[in-house]
Protein backbone atom coordinates (compact mmCIF):
# COMPACT_ATOMS: atom_id res chain seq x y z
CA UNK A 1 0.00 0.00 0.00
CA UNK A 2 0.98 3.60 0.18
CA UNK A 3 2.25 3.29 3.73
CA UNK A 4 5.90 3.36 2.66
CA UNK A 5 5.30 6.44 0.60
CA UNK A 6 3.47 8.06 3.49
CA UNK A 7 6.34 7.33 5.82
CA UNK A 8 8.98 8.57 3.42
CA UNK A 9 7.53 11.94 2.38
CA UNK A 10 5.10 13.70 4.65
CA UNK A 11 1.81 14.48 2.98
CA UNK A 12 1.07 18.04 3.98
CA UNK A 13 -2.38 18.13 2.43
CA UNK A 14 -3.87 15.20 4.22
CA UNK A 15 -4.12 14.45 7.91
CA UNK A 16 -5.20 10.84 8.52
CA UNK A 17 -6.37 11.60 12.07
CA UNK A 18 -9.24 13.89 11.05
CA UNK A 19 -12.57 12.95 9.48
CA UNK A 20 -12.09 15.08 6.39
CA UNK A 21 -8.32 14.79 6.08
CA UNK A 22 -7.99 18.55 6.50
CA UNK A 23 -5.67 19.42 9.42
CA UNK A 24 -7.56 20.94 12.35
CA UNK A 25 -5.39 24.03 12.45
CA UNK A 26 -5.99 24.77 8.80
CA UNK A 27 -9.74 24.40 9.17
CA UNK A 28 -9.67 26.67 12.22
CA UNK A 29 -7.78 29.32 10.29
CA UNK A 30 -10.16 29.15 7.32
CA UNK A 31 -13.16 29.52 9.60
CA UNK A 32 -11.51 32.40 11.42
CA UNK A 33 -10.76 34.14 8.13
CA UNK A 34 -14.41 33.79 7.13
CA UNK A 35 -15.23 35.58 10.35
CA UNK A 36 -12.54 38.21 9.74
CA UNK A 37 -14.07 38.88 6.30
CA UNK A 38 -17.17 40.06 8.10
CA UNK A 39 -15.12 42.34 10.37
CA UNK A 40 -13.51 44.05 7.41
CA UNK A 41 -16.74 43.93 5.43
CA UNK A 42 -18.48 46.01 8.09
CA UNK A 43 -15.64 48.53 8.32
CA UNK A 44 -15.31 48.91 4.56
CA UNK A 45 -19.09 49.30 4.22
CA UNK A 46 -19.01 51.99 6.88
CA UNK A 47 -16.34 53.86 4.94
CA UNK A 48 -18.17 53.51 1.62
CA UNK A 49 -21.49 54.65 3.07
CA UNK A 50 -20.03 57.70 4.78
CA UNK A 51 -18.03 58.53 1.66
CA UNK A 52 -21.30 59.21 -0.13
CA UNK A 53 -22.55 61.65 2.48
CA UNK A 54 -19.73 64.05 3.26
CA UNK A 55 -20.83 67.02 5.34
CA UNK A 56 -19.64 70.44 4.18
CA UNK A 57 -16.01 71.06 5.04
CA UNK A 58 -14.91 67.44 4.71
CA UNK A 59 -11.40 67.30 3.22
CA UNK A 60 -11.20 66.05 -0.39
CA UNK A 61 -9.63 62.60 -0.26
CA UNK A 62 -7.63 63.09 -3.48
CA UNK A 63 -5.91 66.11 -2.06
CA UNK A 64 -4.91 64.17 1.03
CA UNK A 65 -3.82 60.82 -0.39
CA UNK A 66 -0.44 60.14 -1.90
CA UNK A 67 -1.24 57.40 -4.40
CA UNK A 68 2.44 56.91 -5.29
CA UNK A 69 3.47 56.03 -1.75
CA UNK A 70 0.48 53.75 -1.20
CA UNK A 71 1.03 51.97 -4.53
CA UNK A 72 4.60 51.32 -3.47
CA UNK A 73 3.62 49.91 -0.08
CA UNK A 74 0.87 47.82 -1.71
CA UNK A 75 3.45 46.31 -4.05
CA UNK A 76 5.76 45.55 -1.12
CA UNK A 77 2.95 43.85 0.79
CA UNK A 78 2.13 41.71 -2.24
CA UNK A 79 5.76 40.69 -2.54
CA UNK A 80 5.73 39.71 1.12
CA UNK A 81 2.98 37.25 0.24
CA UNK A 82 5.29 35.71 -2.33
CA UNK A 83 8.01 35.30 0.31
CA UNK A 84 5.47 33.83 2.72
CA UNK A 85 4.48 31.22 0.14
CA UNK A 86 8.17 30.36 -0.33
CA UNK A 87 8.59 29.99 3.44
CA UNK A 88 5.68 27.54 3.63
CA UNK A 89 7.09 25.61 0.69
CA UNK A 90 10.52 25.46 2.34
CA UNK A 91 9.31 24.10 5.68
CA UNK A 92 7.14 21.53 3.93
CA UNK A 93 10.32 20.22 2.34
CA UNK A 94 12.12 20.42 5.66
CA UNK A 95 14.47 23.16 4.48
CA UNK A 96 14.76 25.24 7.64
CA UNK A 97 17.47 27.55 6.40
CA UNK A 98 15.48 28.55 3.35
CA UNK A 99 12.40 29.01 5.47
CA UNK A 100 14.23 31.37 7.82
CA UNK A 101 15.42 33.59 4.98
CA UNK A 102 11.96 33.70 3.45
CA UNK A 103 10.37 34.48 6.80
CA UNK A 104 12.91 37.19 7.49
CA UNK A 105 12.14 38.81 4.12
CA UNK A 106 8.43 38.56 4.79
CA UNK A 107 8.91 40.29 8.14
CA UNK A 108 11.12 42.92 6.50
CA UNK A 109 8.50 43.65 3.84
CA UNK A 110 5.78 43.73 6.48
CA UNK A 111 7.81 46.28 8.43
CA UNK A 112 8.28 48.41 5.30
CA UNK A 113 4.51 48.41 4.83
CA UNK A 114 3.97 49.40 8.46
CA UNK A 115 6.66 52.09 8.16
CA UNK A 116 4.93 53.53 5.08
CA UNK A 117 1.66 53.55 7.01
CA UNK A 118 3.21 55.36 9.98
CA UNK A 119 4.75 57.89 7.60
CA UNK A 120 1.44 58.28 5.77
CA UNK A 121 -0.57 58.78 8.98
CA UNK A 122 2.02 61.27 10.22
CA UNK A 123 1.88 63.28 7.00
CA UNK A 124 -1.91 63.25 6.91
CA UNK A 125 -2.22 64.49 10.47
CA UNK A 126 0.53 67.10 10.50
CA UNK A 127 0.64 68.37 6.92
CA UNK A 128 -2.78 67.59 5.45
CA UNK A 129 -4.63 68.25 8.73
CA UNK A 130 -6.74 65.14 8.48
CA UNK A 131 -7.25 63.73 11.96
CA UNK A 132 -9.40 60.96 13.34
CA UNK A 133 -11.66 63.49 15.08
CA UNK A 134 -11.92 66.45 12.74
CA UNK A 135 -13.90 64.88 9.91
CA UNK A 136 -15.90 61.81 9.00
CA UNK A 137 -13.30 60.99 6.32
CA UNK A 138 -10.55 60.95 8.95
CA UNK A 139 -12.70 58.85 11.26
CA UNK A 140 -13.44 56.10 8.77
CA UNK A 141 -10.07 56.25 7.01
CA UNK A 142 -7.91 55.96 10.11
CA UNK A 143 -10.14 53.35 11.75
CA UNK A 144 -10.24 51.14 8.67
CA UNK A 145 -6.60 51.38 7.63
CA UNK A 146 -5.55 51.35 11.28
CA UNK A 147 -7.42 48.09 11.86
CA UNK A 148 -5.68 46.65 8.84
CA UNK A 149 -2.34 47.95 10.11
CA UNK A 150 -3.04 46.22 13.43
CA UNK A 151 -3.60 42.96 11.55
CA UNK A 152 -0.25 43.43 9.76
CA UNK A 153 1.43 44.19 13.09
CA UNK A 154 0.00 41.03 14.68
CA UNK A 155 1.19 39.13 11.60
CA UNK A 156 4.70 40.57 11.93
CA UNK A 157 4.83 39.63 15.63
CA UNK A 158 3.59 36.13 14.82
CA UNK A 159 6.14 35.74 11.98
CA UNK A 160 8.94 36.97 14.23
CA UNK A 161 7.89 34.59 16.98
CA UNK A 162 7.94 31.71 14.53
CA UNK A 163 11.34 32.75 13.23
CA UNK A 164 12.77 32.83 16.76
CA UNK A 165 11.07 29.54 17.60
CA UNK A 166 12.71 27.88 14.60
CA UNK A 167 16.07 28.31 16.36
CA UNK A 168 14.96 26.17 19.33
CA UNK A 169 15.08 23.12 17.10
CA UNK A 170 11.49 22.22 17.81
CA UNK A 171 10.17 23.39 14.46
CA UNK A 172 10.41 20.53 12.00
CA UNK A 173 8.89 19.44 8.74
CA UNK A 174 6.08 17.84 10.74
CA UNK A 175 5.07 21.27 12.09
CA UNK A 176 4.70 22.75 8.60
CA UNK A 177 1.00 23.25 9.34
CA UNK A 178 1.90 25.88 11.96
CA UNK A 179 3.75 27.90 9.34
CA UNK A 180 1.08 27.19 6.75
CA UNK A 181 -1.82 28.46 8.87
CA UNK A 182 0.23 31.55 9.71
CA UNK A 183 0.72 31.95 5.98
CA UNK A 184 -3.02 31.73 5.37
CA UNK A 185 -3.49 34.60 7.79
CA UNK A 186 -0.78 36.63 6.12
CA UNK A 187 -2.17 36.11 2.63
CA UNK A 188 -5.62 37.05 3.89
CA UNK A 189 -4.32 40.30 5.35
CA UNK A 190 -2.75 41.06 1.96
CA UNK A 191 -5.93 40.27 0.07
CA UNK A 192 -7.91 42.53 2.37
CA UNK A 193 -5.45 45.28 1.61
CA UNK A 194 -6.13 44.87 -2.12
CA UNK A 195 -9.80 45.48 -1.38
CA UNK A 196 -9.03 48.45 0.88
CA UNK A 197 -6.58 49.91 -1.64
CA UNK A 198 -9.28 49.72 -4.29
CA UNK A 199 -12.22 50.88 -2.21
CA UNK A 200 -10.49 53.60 -0.24
CA UNK A 201 -7.71 54.89 -2.49
CA UNK A 202 -8.28 54.01 -6.16
CA UNK A 203 -11.98 54.83 -5.96
CA UNK A 204 -11.10 58.47 -5.33
CA UNK A 205 -9.20 58.70 -8.64
CA UNK A 206 -11.95 57.44 -10.92
Amino acid sequence: MSSQAAAATLDHHHDPTTSTGIPNKKLLMWAFLASDCMFFGCLISTHLIYRLHPPPGTPIARQVFSIELTSFSTFILLMSSLMMALAVNAIQKGNLKSMRWSLLTTIFFGCIFLGCQVFEFNTFVHEKHLTITNSILGTTFFTLTGTHGLHVLIGVIWLSGMLLYSFTGNLTQKDAIDVESMGLYWHFVDIVWIVIFTAVYLLEYI
Binding site: S35, C42, T58, T133, T139, T143
Partner: peptide
Protein backbone atom coordinates in the same frame (compact mmCIF):
# COMPACT_ATOMS: atom_id res chain seq x y z
CA UNK B 1 -18.23 40.60 13.70
CA UNK B 2 -21.01 43.04 12.81
CA UNK B 3 -21.74 43.95 16.41
CA UNK B 4 -18.04 43.91 17.22
CA UNK B 5 -17.40 46.54 14.57
CA UNK B 6 -20.43 48.53 15.69
CA UNK B 7 -19.12 48.41 19.25
CA UNK B 8 -15.61 49.35 18.08
CA UNK B 9 -17.12 52.37 16.36
CA UNK B 10 -19.08 53.52 19.40
CA UNK B 11 -16.04 52.82 21.56
CA UNK B 12 -13.86 54.99 19.31
CA UNK B 13 -16.50 57.70 19.50
CA UNK B 14 -16.58 57.52 23.28
CA UNK B 15 -12.87 57.13 23.97
CA UNK B 16 -11.20 59.06 21.18
CA UNK B 17 -13.87 61.47 19.97
CA UNK B 18 -14.34 60.06 16.46
CA UNK B 19 -17.44 60.89 14.43
CA UNK B 20 -19.07 57.58 13.54
CA UNK B 21 -22.32 58.51 15.24
CA UNK B 22 -21.68 62.22 15.73
CA UNK B 23 -24.39 63.89 13.67
CA UNK B 24 -22.78 67.33 13.73
CA UNK B 25 -19.73 65.94 11.90
CA UNK B 26 -21.48 63.79 9.33
Amino acid sequence: PAITIALVEIMMDRLFGTNFFEVSNG
